[in-house]
Write a protein that binds this DNA or RNA. Structure first.
Lengths: 204, 204, 204, 204
DNA sequence: GATGAATGAGATTTCATTCAT
DNA sequence: AATGAATGAAATCTCATTCAT
């Protein structure tokens, strides 16, 4: 319906121009409706932006969830999730821009929306790591702070690769996922076996 | 000199408000000069922002370069580089915000500046990977595209960790670097030894 | 009927918000009908406001007329009229606001409507003064211009007292009327007896 | 200087159109300056209107004060004050419209400004009544509430006559003042002598 | 007879940018 | 070398008003 068109247009404009540089005029024009109509459905620029963030966040988490089957082994779940993630971000670059770039550069109301989505994904990854540790018959005595950092790094690497894959023609979601799996899973495996990299002693 | 003060003020305002929300009035006031003077030295808001990006990019790459001693082993070089990177971003949060958040959310002119800096860092990491392969007495037959993806993932993970470390009080640059080394170096090591993670066969 | 509800709502909104700040949306909502219906019955905001003015003006003059019995002495007629006036304005503050405040603050079309009502009241007062003169067995040789001014002053004082009584809790219509009668009638009586206040000579 | 021109234009537009119907565009154009300049000097439409009210209120009270010499008898002081009042309002019809009509039809911020000015004038009139009572060798046992109503009625009559005199060509300030003096002073005199008008008994 | 849906026009306000000095 | 004073252009948002049904 009409609201759908407006959100589509808004995601496109917000994703390409950024929140502040986007003008309601341009969004209304791209949606093929008049400006007052945009204000009738979504009440202000802020609420319109928030609606975009919510819709795109829901679409992304739904896509990842739909790509993963809970019964499979942890590495397979991670692989499936990553492929779904890269496929979705490749198919919705403007939505991804809204979530990854635009929403984070403006104050609390918006950043909080994205933070919620991110927290969900980080929690998912963290669960997978725990499962992997159990599967490797190793009691997971990695310190919690370390696990949080690892999950953060893994998610950050994925986010970064998504942008890179989008910008590098000829890169498929499958390739991006394979690259990250090789990079991450092996490293995690080493950690599980206790093969840690030891930093050199600090000079006095 | 005068220009220095203006750029300092601009980086602070741009880093905190974002490009569009920053006003030239505010920048001039914070710099303690009049607005026409800002226009005399730096000709427009766009050029001022570009100058900020260039200066902060140069400062960051210089900080990383200064932290690394070329003669040492590859893992030690990566460790030192990461520590320098995390230390610099922690000490210059506004500059890092300009580079990592603000510059990328607006069209080509600015994103390209950051991309150039990023390419430099990715090239540095790529060289280190090559050196590591040589040190491991293994001819590096990893496909070039794979290497690029790995470097991208590593840099992305570092960027993500930098923001995370900045936002998480009590996290030192040393800890962030150690987390990432454990995560990344071990994975790379596995790759060097040919232990790759194999994706499942695609269904027809 | 439907039109009655709309006018009730309009008088309330116009009286409280003023002509320009009142929105047709709000009026339609308060009337419990849809906006196009308002436009069907009353054709535009201007006509709606004019209709409000006419209705409230008619109601006010009718209230005053109904309060006065023509056969009685002039002072009694004035007293009765004033009580009716103060009672009506106290019971219909929004209508009085429309007439006294809102209608006069916008250009000719509206001010003229109120002027007509005012002229009627001034004429009534003028007739009473003439009757009083006759009753006092004095041929009324007060110049016509003077009489007009006196009536104007009396009506203005009444209007002002109405607003004051509305804003001062505990002031009844009876008290307001008594205050004004004391103030005005005595002065008029003096005038009738030829006891005029003589202005000092103008310097050359 | 520039601010003066802007206020002149604003008083003219506000006085003729009313607060809401006046547009900043029109004011700026009449002042011969650009709209942003108006916002530079006076910060918003509200502040501009408030500045107009303050200026016109100060000018009016100053004109009245300058017209009255404190040493003279009370009736002479009232006569002089009224003449100054009618002369000033006749010479500044837009300013008078701003004070008497426009400022009162919009919420507290503006009405309060005018109320302060009015209170000053009412206090002045009240003092004169007290002096007159002393001069008439009568201890002023008029109840306080009665005095307040009388002052209110007198001021209201004056305000109303000002509008009437403005709208009736050929009416001088001197004539308006004489009319009001005859009307008011004689009535007050009667009151002083204890000749009150007695309202008829209320029916049960 | 009645309305949900829609819009053209215009409101206040801000900002990057430039003269005249 | 430096600035106080000024503006064109555009932003968000509101409102009286009208079709299509």
């Amino acid at each position: 319906m009409r609201e759908r068109q407006m959100l589509d247009a808004a995601v496109r404009i917000f994703g390409q121009r950024g929140y502040m540089a986007a003008s309601m005029d341009e969004i209304a024009e791209l949606a093929g409706v008049s400006k007052p109509l945009v204000y009738l459905y979504l009440n202000s620029k802020e609420e319109l932006f928030t609606a975009c963030i919510r819709r795109e966040a829901a679409a992304l988490t739904e896509a990842v969830r739909a790509g993963v089957r809970p019964g499979l082994p942890a590495d397979r779940q991670l692989w499936d999730g990553l492929r779904a993630f890269f496929a979705h971000t490749a198919e919705h670059p403007d939505g991804w821009s809204v979530l990854h770039l635009q929403a984070r550069t403006h104050g609390e109301p918006f950043a909080a929306e994205v933070a919620a989505m991110r927290a969900e994904i980080v929690a998912f990854v963290t669960r997978l790591v725990a499962v992997a540790a159990r599967e490797a018959h190793r009691d997971p005595d990695l310190p919690e702070h370390e696990v949080a950092g690892l999950a953060e790094a893994l998610v950050g690497a994925a986010e970064s690769l998504a942008a890179w894959a989008n910008a590098t023609p000829g890169t498929t979601a499958r390739q991006a996922a394979a690259t990250l799996m090789n990079f991450a899973w092996a490293g995690l495996g080493n950690l599980m076996r206790g093969e840690v990299w030891t930093p050199p002693a600090e000079p006095a």
